[in-house]
Amino acid sequence: MTKRPFLGWFASPSILIAFGITASVLAIVQYSLRAHVPGSIDPGGFTLANFATLWHVAYGLVFLNSLLLCIWTALFALLIGYPLAYAMVRARSLSLRSAILLISLTPLFLGEIVRTYSWMIVLGNRGFLNSVLLQTGLIERPINLMFTMSGVVIALVHFTLPIVVVMLAAALSHIDRNLERAATSLGAGRIRVFLTVTLPLSIPGVVAATSTAFAWTFSAFATPQMIGGGQVQTISTMVYQVGFASFNFPLAASLSLMGLLFAVAVLAIFNTGMRQLERHGAH
């Protein structure tokens, strides 16, 4: 056994963070089991009533809506991010690679509020996008993007793109170029090489990127709140509404908790599914 003298030092911050997260989750669990006292911020006695309240079609629809939002966002982020990542890893010119990296990382440098406001300016009925489309005569009436699912998805794709591109690029850059050369020498053209070698070998990266995009979207709040404007309900916006508009903290806590469990379950199913596909797909 080799000695790793700094391991304790390096690990200590993560222990602190883990402690913080555990404490806050426990606090939420605790809140979710307390009764709501109307007109008071302090919770009442222990009860399971909050979870019973959540067992309702309206909340189910919000969960479903969140799921749909995540799926669309992850899908489009992947469709846009994969070619970008591929170009970034494979481009011969260094300046092109740097340019792609820089452009795909910009969303990270803007704050969430700034980014979302920018999208509101772009997506509005008299916003940038509609003005351009109207002016060029491509459309006759403005497309409704603000306060719609599509608008929220567009903004969230922008938000998740950096992490998707970076994770896919990492996965792609680890693929041995000789594998593609071997396939080429065996008679495979570019498309076939991509479909039979590059793509299958990048699946772990796709899974990781999709999971992350999924989790980011799931936890996004400002974007669905501001661009959705109350018309696009997600679990996060619902938690905010229940907690800070109705001041029903216990219900908000149980909603958060169910949301967390829901996200974990969806990701677990997705990961297992992809692993099965990987094992049996290309064998």
Partner: peptide, 12 residues
Amino acid sequence: IVFQNYALFPHM
């Protein structure tokens, strides 16, 4: 072609 690192397709 036979490569130094074999370059076998790991997923097949």
